[in-house]
């Protein structure tokens, strides 16, 4: 039983320490914007943010709010809504350390982490400036077939994995469906924090249709209810992204002052209005 995992959103955010290596999901997997807001509200600092394998508004806001020391990602994009102004500005002003990656490298390093391995080899990469700028990555000769150079990446074991999911149950199991990278994140991370749309009274493992799409409670440390908790990002199969809110954000975040005004308004809202 993992009943004690269920907590208030503010408690969940308070349990993310300054300096944590925090892994977050990409937009089509379930982004906990509700927890992000609480993290910014509590003034978290010095995060090593690992985007699995890319991020959008979540990383952009955390960077803009000064919460991030190191950003490890394959991309930061707000898609058609426009540039991630705060991310770009932070790079220019050297406020963050960037570890530019490539999507399969983030996935593979987490897979090494879930297996308890120190590192994992990965194809590609050789001859790219992505590899040239990653002093933490190495190239070795394939020990089984000499004359075949291959890159090695150290495992990623996040302190905390954080995402938003449609459903949890009272035992602390969390439903993720086919968003399997969330399972890998939970396996690789020391702790997993989740916000959910709802908590079901029925155990997910009592339903054979739900069980294969569940993260077992043994991996889950905190669950907080946050209705529309991905807003203004969408939660696939549940709700889409809020185009108007995202456009407004990109417009506000063009300047530091505009971003501060956005933050004041965002943090001031007692509950998400949709």
């Amino acid at each position: 039983m993992n009943q004690q995992a269920i907590c208030e959103l503010a408690e969940l955010a308070a349990a993310v320490p300054d300096g944590a290596k925090l892994a977050v999901a990409q937009d089509n997997c379930g982004v906990s914007m509700a927890a992000t807001r609480e993290l910014v509200r509590r003034g978290v600092r010095g995060l090593h943010l690992v985007c699995v394998p890319v991020s959008g508004l979540q990383a952009e806001i955390l960077v803009g709010a000064g919460a991030v020391a190191t950003l490890e990602t394959s991309a930061i994009t707000l898609g058609e809504f426009g540039p991630a102004h705060r991310f770009i500005d932070a790079l220019r002003k050297k406020r963050i350390r960037i570890l530019d990656s490539t999507c399969p490298a983030v996935h593979a390093a987490l897979q090494a982490g879930q297996k308890g391995l120190p590192f994992i080899p990965l194809r590609g990469l050789i001859g790219s400036d992505v590899l040239a700028n990653r002093k933490d990555w190495k190239v070795i000769d394939n020990p089984f077939s000499p004359g075949d150079p291959i890159a090695l990446l150290p495992a990623i074991n996040p302190d905390i994995a954080l995402f938003h999911a449609p459903l949890a149950d009272r035992s602390g199991n969390v439903y993720i469906g086919r968003r399997r990278e969330l399972l890998t994140m939970a396996h690789a991370a020391k702790q997993t924090f989740v916000t959910v749309e709802a908590i079901s009274e029925q155990d997910l493992f009592d339903d054979p249709k739900m069980a294969p799409g569940a993260v077992p409670a043994i991996y889950i440390n905190r669950i907080a209810i946050a209705k529309q908790g991905a807003w203004p990002v969408g939660l696939p199969e549940h709700y889409g992204c809020d185009d108007a809110a995202l456009s407004r954000y990109v417009n506000s975040a063009k300047t530091e002052d505009g971003f501060r005004r956005f933050l004041d308004e965002w943090l001031g809202e007692a509950a998400v209005t949709v």
Binding site: F87, S101, P104
Partner: peptide, 25 residues
């Protein structure tokens, strides 16, 4: 990734995504 010197970049784009892998394979 971007133009000019790295990592400050004159113009910064989102990032490499999966290109440093799929282009090889």
């Amino acid at each position: 990734v971007g133009t000019g010197s790295y990592p400050e970049s004159e113009v910064r784009w989102p990032g490499s995504f999966g290109s440093a892998y799929v282009y090889y394979l």
